[in-house]
Design a protein around this nucleic acid. Structure first.
Lengths: 156, 156
DNA sequence: TAAGATGATGCAACCCTTTGTAGTTGCATG
DNA sequence: CATGCAACTACAAAGGGTTGCATCATCTTA
């Protein structure tokens, strides 16, 4: 599936996103085309820097601030998700490729994928008790994995 | 209560933290003394920049990287907590002043305090199903508050 | 098709934070 | 008290990300 979950071919995908953009009075530019393609073609989560490097290979005068601005725009339109795993750089992911969360081990850096259903309970709680619509897509939760915890126990 | 929840007077608090430090082979320095005092005296969450400004008033040649390194050390020792509310700067808080989470509205920036008990359920789930010890102290959850959600509904 | 309006971009500067490094401070041991 | 070692610090530089601004591109309407 592509970024939009409808068609297979990139050109059609881009036509579709171009539609989405123009519905909001925004425009599809060559820069945005390449940024969208980079996110779409990444197998897993991709960083802004990695997107930037892919883009300037074909279009060397694009600025990285354009990459960030485009990604923010796409995130606002809910076409991509931003995830802060706490390692100092934000990762991007096509929104239709499934949502999930990440358990990040503070010690060894291991990343454990966590199904999004695991948190639907608190999402409901927050809505009911706090009138708050929590956006838990691609949440990064820090902590300690079993392996690292065992090590501490051994040492002590 | 002070940062350590035992004595009232700062000097004693600092003696106590000095003990904690030296137990780990670390030292209590004048810089650390002032940084600890700044976190301790803040009524709510304080940023590194704010701590830095307090410190250099009395000790003008302290560098901000020392502030960051000290805060990281204190966080590792679980004496302070770091919270990323998503506004581009991390806040610090004495660990013994109670844990809670924050619901941050993506639209208006409102911050709703959330009791830490609200998330103990998923903490247990993550431990049981994923063998992961989640550190949910002072978590920042982004989303949309009722007020902003109502506005969108009205507009549409 | 010309004019105005609005969106998008590149560039430079800046913000917050981290990191490398060389020099210092303080502790422990002989 | 000298020596060695490890912790600590200031400074500078860099990293990831954002922002202000002037310019450019595109769209609309007449």
């Amino acid at each position: 599936m592509n970024l939009f979950g409808r068609k297979q071919k990139q050109t059609e995908a881009h036509n579709h996103i171009a539609d989405d953009l123009s519905q909001k009075g925004l425009r599809m530019t060559p820069q945005r085309l390449m940024i969208v393609a980079a996110v779409e073609n990444s197998t897993n989560h991709i960083s802004a820097e990695e997107i930037y490097e892919q883009v300037i290979e074909k279009y060397p005068n694009v600025n990285i601030s354009t990459v960030y601005r485009t990604l923010d725009t796409l995130a606002e339109m809910r076409l991509v998700t931003k995830t802060d795993l706490g390692d100092g750089r934000v990762r991007y992911h096509p929104a239709d490729k499934g949502h999930h969360h990440h358990l990040v081990c503070r010690e060894c850096g291991a990343i454990i994928d966590l199904d999004e259903k695991a948190l639907t309970g608190i999402q409901a709680t927050l809505l009911r008790d706090y009138n708050f619509i929590a956006d838990l897509r691609h949440l990064g939760i820090s902590g300690k994995c079993v392996k690292c915890n065992r090590q501490v126990v051994r040492e002590t």
